[in-house]
Design a protein around this nucleic acid. Structure first.
Lengths: 255, 255
DNA sequence: CTAATTAGTGTAAAAAGTACACTAGCCCTG
DNA sequence: CAGGGCTAGTGTACTTTTTACACTAATTAG
């Protein structure tokens, strides 16, 4: 080792942005910090990486310790390292992101998390540290992803209606989509299994229920398929169905 | 600060993957390390981040110190943090990537770089640390990028022919493209300025020279436009033009 | 002048994207 | 039990984009 070897007292953390979808809203799982700095503020579930721990494993461990959520697939998104982002010293943080079905998990705060709760992404206050920025960067990534892959299924309960799926896409993309074109595209991908069941207890015509075909999805990815969501190019016209715009577009897009 | 505060003696580095294009080949800029660990091995130009330095600035500084290359736009790609990736201790590294015109820069090794040299990406040996893995992840990203944005212009000299541009795309994507469709697409994007000049000193019909229209490119990005490259779906047929496949595809793909 | 070499060009058929409006089925109420 | 309210569900014609494909043009070298 040379004289100045670049090592100094510093730390790495991981921060997780966990997206879910519920009540027509895109949500993110946040904890209320029970520890300084920023005690009492809402923050992403994140914590220090141990000296003998890989980043990816740390993300998984920290998420479970703080929120009780385990067995999720976390994907690295970006690393944030502004000099003053942590008041106690030099800390760089690696942001991870995941999409989960809210109904599949019970959130249980522990460790430094006083509470753990789902928050609507569309109305978030300022978070601890630079976590607002981190969340936003994950959200942008999700928007990109959702146009490229049939990503939404991870966020819905096992059985869902096409309208729910459409609402999910609309919530993520913040744009209305055309019902008929959306259905046409989604169904043409053959990723859905029609369960031949219908909703119960709704005060209107009940919708058919579908489930996501995991094995077809894997084929889809293996084939290098992707699809794209496009917004309509047409100008607003203010009548009839004109509010429902946008298409789901599947491309054969081999690498 | 709590008792265990997560801080320990550790380090962050940045590693830069600088792509260029020359002699029909995609190249990456590497340094020969003049310092342990891995002295004498080829490596990405990377070094320690100073305690009072942002990650992005560190990437820029380190690149200049090691190779003399400055004023490049570096984009963060991924962070690598395997526990044993550095023999001297816990070091996580943030990988940055850039595309430059080789002819615009003079490479000048200094600091711990014994040499700095462009290497063909297609025939690389094992690099120091986990740098092979890092380079590969940047290459994958480049492949994705090149389908989504007219990215290649950064890699070519100011004046270039359409055939050179096509070769660049073919080199990055490792797939042949159809000449007529490629030209049609590229020209329809209106990102090229026809210089009304032709090549000189070539032993065949000289090609027209084009330059990249920077202002149109900025419009393009602002409009959220993107384009996509697709490979042909057809089966090999072994006759005539059948070798030239693939298309350049422009989409209006507003977010 | 001829051969060699790369540049440059168009079209027709197929696939995908887009806009758009009405009927069907269930519950609730009076 | 009829009618209103609500969401589900469906098809078509038009436009745009993608795709496959083969020959002529311009230059240099010999």
């Amino acid at each position: 080792m040379t004289d100045f070897d670049g090592f100094f007292k510093s730390a790495f953390t991981v921060d997780n942005v966990i997206f879910g979808f519920d009540e027509g809203d895109l949500k993110a799982l946040l904890i209320k910090r029970g520890e300084d700095p920023h005690q009492g503020m809402w923050a992403l579930p994140g914590y220090f990486v141990d000296p003998q721990e890989d980043l990816d494993s740390a993300a998984v461990r920290v998420l479970e310790q703080l929120t009780g959520i385990k067995d999720v697939f976390l994907e690295q998104v970006h690393t944030f390292g502004a000099v003053d982002r942590h008041p106690f010293g030099r800390v760089i943080t690696v942001a991870y992101c995941s999409l989960i079905k809210i109904s599949d998990y019970t959130v249980q705060a522990s460790s430094i998390a006083q509470k753990a709760k789902w928050h609507s992404v569309s109305r978030l206050k300022k978070l601890a540290f630079d976590h607002s920025e981190i969340l936003e960067s994950c959200l942008n990534r999700l928007k990109r992803l959702v146009r490229t892959r049939p990503v939404g299924f991870e966020l819905l309960p096992p059985k869902f209606t096409l309208t729910e799926l459409q609402h999910l896409y609309e919530a993520i993309l913040e744009t209305p989509l055309d019902k008929r074109n959306f259905r046409k595209k989604i169904l043409s991908m053959n990723l859905l299994i029609d369960l031949d069941e219908t909703q119960e207890g709704v005060a209107h015509r009940p919708a058919r229920l579908y489930e996501f075909d995991q094995s077809k999805y894997e084929e889809f990815l293996a084939d290098g398929f992707s699809f794209e969501l496009k917004e309509s190019k047409r100008k607003e016209k203010g009548n009839g169905e004109a509010l429902s715009k946008g298409q789901l577009v599947k491309n054969t897009d081999k690498l």
